[in-house]
């Protein structure tokens, strides 16, 4: 293949990554921040406060506070972690929720949403690394008349989506 002039082939830079906002580190079970609030080293991600969760990272606007109800799902929307409050709210232990689809536990309850799969689409986008923190209205899968506002966004370091329920 021949090239004509320097404009035929040129190296172009990758698109600039979206500016990532400040991130917070929290325990995936008790939501407490580690001492110093710094990202853990690989191999030491177990929460020193409760010992029952792994330290995760999320945008500061999304990161839960202790006593928040939240869930962590992977790219296939399987549940990996439930906070203590989410366990109480949904009536099942984290170990029993493991590998269940989040849609078995929570469903969209937003009349304005863009279709029945709106919640799944938001979760897939978040687990794929979308930086935005989005909001949705959800309800427990087997209950009517109860609705929660939920913030949804990415968490890591292993790609996942974090759903924080606003219980008011």
């Amino acid at each position: 293949m021949s090239t004509h002039g320097s404009s035929a082939l040129r190296i172009i830079g990758s698109p600039a990554p979206a500016a990532a906002g400040p991130r917070a580190v929290f325990c995936g079970h008790c939501a407490k921040t580690p001492p110093g609030g710094v990202a853990p080293e690989v191999g030491s991600r177990v929460c020193v406060s409760c010992g029952l969760g792994l330290l995760l990272e999320a945008p500061e606007a999304l990161a839960p506070k202790p006593r928040d109800a939240f869930l962590v799902v992977d790219r296939s929307l399987s549940v990996h972690a439930l906070s203590k409050r989410a366990e109480k709210l949904l009536g099942l232990r984290e170990i029993d929720a493991l590998d269940k689809r989040i849609t078995d536990l929570l469903v969209g309850a937003d009349a304005e949403a863009a279709g029945p799969h709106h919640l799944s689409a938001l979760l897939v986008a978040a687990a794929a690394g979308a930086d935005d923190v989005t909001e949705a209205v959800v309800r427990p899968a087997d209950e009517f008349g109860v609705r929660f506002a939920a913030r949804i966004g990415p968490c890591g370091p292993t790609p996942g989506a974090l759903v924080v329920l606003d219980l008011g």
């Binding site: 995936g28 792994l54 995760l56 972690a81 984290e94």
Partner: peptide, 16 residues
């Protein structure tokens, strides 16, 4: 367990 914790999202899933 050590290997599973390395890229897990929770202790429960790593144990599993």
């Amino acid at each position: 367990l050590r290997d599973a914790l390395r890229d897990g999202l929770s202790i429960s899933s790593a144990v599993s």
